[in-house]
Design a protein around this nucleic acid. Structure first.
Lengths: 160, 160
DNA sequence: GCAACTGTAACTATATTTGTTACAGACGAA
DNA sequence: TTCGTCTGTAACAAATATAGTTACAGTTGC
């Protein structure tokens, strides 16, 4: 199955931006939270920008932020932006066309895989980044010491 | 996503056996229909045998056949037998525990991924190998010349 | 005993994803 | 206008996963 963590990372990135509340985040800050290389993040941000989920600004004081409200971004949007293939794959090499099963199994499998993809998409379409953030908050109270500190400060204080 | 074709191949294999109707198939025959190496098939057959979906017999005149009726084998059974991971993966390296988002995003993502997996499983649980075979038959009439020939003969005639 | 199979180990090959270095170009501020 | 700070992107290395191959021990029917 998904051997890639692209979807998980993308959700993480957009969640950070929702948390940071319109303050542009630098790729290095994001990378530090995700625990990867800034270039990996920038690559992903390009895809997310193409899908119009984030906007980025070059140059000093630049960074990236959400292109629209967290409640207007679904996990399906993210999924479609960063994950090109469906959930399953067909045979690497096409089956034997001289076998009555081999010649048609692809058609049937595609029907099944479509049903699966549709089911996945239905789930993802019903979850927004706002939902993710709100599911996140309950955990935060118990793990992070609470003082007068904005969410943005918390995100930016990653290296402490 | 699933970069692997294991599920597709496994469905193909069990469909062949349902088609062959209790006649044991040799790994080489199956490999020829799937268009791969017999050892790849034997490896998969071992997993399917562990999951009690097929039974194999060593030695001359050996081979593998379904362990139970096609209508009693769901695609979910197959999925669980050959595909160990869920649909999506989390981060390769765990996120930064000092970030309020990073420390808890895993929990939220796991909830989401569970919802997705559940949706996938619900779809697969409702499709049996018998369904696959019956979806296959309509195609066969139009692509394979019909004469007095049993399904088993057709499968075995792969190399013609 | 022999020929025909499976089960399995040990590789190699291939593909995909992730991580890294390097640098051109955008941009704000002094 | 120059400088330091960012993004965008190319080019490549490393890590991982999947698929394919060869080889052979062990089973089984004849």
């Amino acid at each position: 199955m998904s051997t890639s963590s692209r979807f998980a990372v993308a959700v993480h990135v957009l969640t950070l931006m929702a948390w940071a509340d319109d303050e542009p985040l630098k790729s290095e800050q994001v990378a530090e939270s995700v625990n990867t290389n800034p270039v990996v993040i920038r690559r992903m941000l390009c895809e997310l920008a193409e899908a119009k989920l984030v906007v980025s600004q070059s140059g000093a004081m630049g960074g990236s932020k959400l292109a629209r409200e967290p409640k207007e971004i679904t996990l399906l949007d993210i999924y479609q932006a960063v994950e090109n293939r469906g959930v399953f794959s067909l045979h690497r090499h096409p089956p034997n066309r001289h076998c009555p099963v081999g010649v048609n199994i692809g058609t049937v499998l595609n029907q099944v895989l479509d049903e699966v993809d549709t089911a996945v998409e239905r789930v993802l379409a019903n979850i927004t980044i706002r939902d993710v953030v709100s599911r996140l908050r309950p955990c935060v109270g118990s793990t992070v010491t609470r003082r007068k500190q904005t969410a943005k400060e918390q995100v930016l204080a990653v290296r402490n």
